[in-house]
Simulated scan of single mutants.
Amino acid sequence: MNSTDILQTHGANLYEITFNLLSNSKLAEFIPNKNSTIIIKPDIKYINNTLYSTSPVILTTIIKYLQDNNFTNINLALGSLIDDDLEQLLITCKYDKIVDKLNIPVYGLKDKDYTTKTIGGIEYKLIDKVINADFFINLVTSSPNETTILHNALQAMQNILHTQNRSLFTTDNFYKAICFLNYLIKANFTLVEIDSLSDIQADKHMYATIDNLLADAYYAQNLGYKPFDIEYIELASKLNIGCADINKANIINLIDNTVTCDNNSKLASHINTSSPCEQCYQNLLQALSLLDKDNLLDKLPTKLFIGQGWREFSENGIGIGRCTSKFENYVRGCPPSPQKTYEFLKEFICNNQNA
């Protein structure tokens, strides 16, 4: 796995797609040796006063993958930026049984379990174990965010901080605080669950990379933004934290959702595009291919609209993905999976015929 690689996959079985990412990224080969100190940091955050965190399934899958590859020094790091009571946080996030059953030590920030480092005029209190780790895994549950437009890999790093650092993320220094933290501590491997809160019934989308900044640039593009529309992505790029040029990314789809060229023109005739993201467009082609196999494609009553250019429009047709959320009828997701789009369109066709 190279620094510009982004491995992505999706599916209903969270264990399977997590394991798929780990094995295809060859994570075990990146870790220096079997005795290396490995730190896994889950993502824990509040959205609208509700606590959300990395799925216990993802956490368990990673730990078991590492143990099966004979790594013996695996640790969990829980910062207390969210909650001072780490024991209760383990229970709330449903990690308590995992660490007990798999015998995983947990490190947090109690009393003096931190080291203070200052950079850019900002003082950070960091978990000692994270600073001294041989290999650091950053787990992320991405989501849109009112303050910073998005919450993803760079911002998720705040979970290695002491509660006394809370004020950093409620001031005008917010963007600097995120960037300089990632300058101090770099993740060796980042695994992102995309929009895990948007639709619990939908297929789960995940990707992995070894560059936190590239992870954020990629997610920004999926949301319909240019990476430098996000202020802290631009600042992080100036600090050379990683790569923010999504054009340099090598995006590897572990599930092949491409459609043969012979059939593309037929499917594309039903689509009205305006700057769509590649993955969103490919997913739509796959959904239309499924409709075609069911002899339903020609029964679509209207064209389908997809792409960032439709974000401010409210057309009468059917929109595909978050960028068409102002449409009366649209498929939720960013991007929506082929199966979800297929089922939506199939139901729409049936309802239209019965009207």
Rank of each mutant, 00 (worst) to 15 (best):
I185L: 11
D195E: 03
L161Y: 04
A187P: 03
L213R: 02
L191I: 15
D172T: 11
L161F: 07
N159Q: 12
T209C: 04
N173D: 15
Q201T: 13
F180R: 09
T190C: 02
N159G: 15
D199I: 14
Y183W: 08
T163D: 05
F180N: 11
N188G: 13
I210H: 00
V192D: 06
N182S: 05
N159D: 14
L191F: 07
Q164T: 14
D211C: 02
Y175F: 14
K186V: 11
N182M: 03
Y207H: 03
A156F: 04
D195N: 03
S196K: 08
F169M: 13
L197V: 14
T190Y: 01
N173M: 14
F189W: 07
Y207I: 01
N182P: 02
Y183M: 09
N159L: 12
N212V: 01
I210Q: 02
F189H: 03
Q158Y: 13
S167A: 08
S196W: 07
E193Y: 11
L213F: 05
H205D: 02
N159H: 10
K176D: 12
K186E: 15
I194K: 00
T170N: 07
F169V: 14
M157D: 00
H205V: 08
N159R: 10
K176C: 04
N173W: 11
K204D: 04
S198N: 12
Y207R: 00
L181K: 00
S196I: 11
Q201D: 15
K204F: 08
I178W: 01
I200K: 10
N212C: 06
T171G: 13
N165Q: 11
S198L: 14
T163Y: 11
V192S: 08
Y183E: 10
T170C: 03
L214Q: 06
N173K: 13
D203F: 11
D172C: 10
F174K: 12
H162Q: 10
K204Q: 08
N182T: 07
V192L: 09
Y207D: 01
I200W: 08
A156Y: 03
K176G: 05
D203E: 15
K186I: 14
L184T: 06
H162C: 11
F189S: 01
I210S: 03
L161E: 05
E193V: 13
N212L: 04
L197S: 11
F180V: 12
L191C: 08
A208E: 10
L197D: 13
V192Q: 08
D216K: 06
A215E: 05
F189N: 01
S167E: 09
L161R: 04
A215V: 11
I160D: 00
D195H: 01
A208R: 08
T171K: 14
H205Q: 06
D195C: 00
L197Q: 14
L191R: 09
K176M: 09
I185H: 09
M157C: 01
I178F: 02
I178S: 01
K204A: 09
A156R: 02
